[in-house]
Amino acid sequence: MNTAVPTWAGVAASIALVLPAIAVAWHRRLDLARDIAVAAARAGVQLAAVGAILLLVFQHTGVAGAAGCLALMVITAGRVCAGRSAGLPRALPIATTAVAVGSGATLGVLLALGVIAPQARVVIPVGGMVVSGAMQATTLLLVRLRDEARTARPAIEARLALGLPAVEAFAPHLRSTLRTALIPAVDATRTVGLISLPGAMTGLILAGVDPLTAIRYQIVVMYMMLSAAALAALTAAHLAERALFDDVHRLRPLTAGTRG
């Protein structure tokens, strides 16, 4: 047994850390005490369930099970992105496709080059990180793109009215939105290790792997996150641009979105 990993008794003891947060919320009448308690309990139950499912997949289903898990992650991520970008035409298929393309291409390259092993216990956690990175970039892009199409409608229509095709009329707005969507991934890559130790590296070090070995994994993780974000954002931008305009180069009316 790895002494760096908490025992179940240790996990139970860590509940003590939640109690001060509940006490402060209750004492200051923040109306959050119940939410904190429920969130903490829910986190424990969710993670226990995920652990059990992963154990099942690792032991019994192999790579096929891993693929099923990844598909579920992509579908869930697509729904989250689409919820945030409500009001954008065809938000759900666009978001799901973008996350799937960004994640699939990145994982495919990693597997094809032999960088990661084609085993469920590797593909699922690595895939989870990739899907998460693709989801963040897609959400950011679609939300910004929707808002840009709303607020910049007069400028976009002024270009269309001059006879510019939709792609050219929207190009300046698409460019700035893509930049914004990719900045978090670029910044995370640039400052990795300087502001905080990244998750994969931290996990490996806690699991007893020496730091020089841990960084190898982390370098791969950073590159794949960058790739997933860029591919997902580009795919989402391309599809959203087509959805925003009709076949006679008109900006479609955007329905009111309440979330995001």
Binding site: P154, E157, A158, R159, A161, L162, G163, V248
Partner: peptide, 18 residues
Amino acid sequence: VLELRRRVGLVGQQPVLL
């Protein structure tokens, strides 16, 4: 449609500089 818009220009109510 693009040719039509080049033949039929439109200037909106609020000036939009690009």
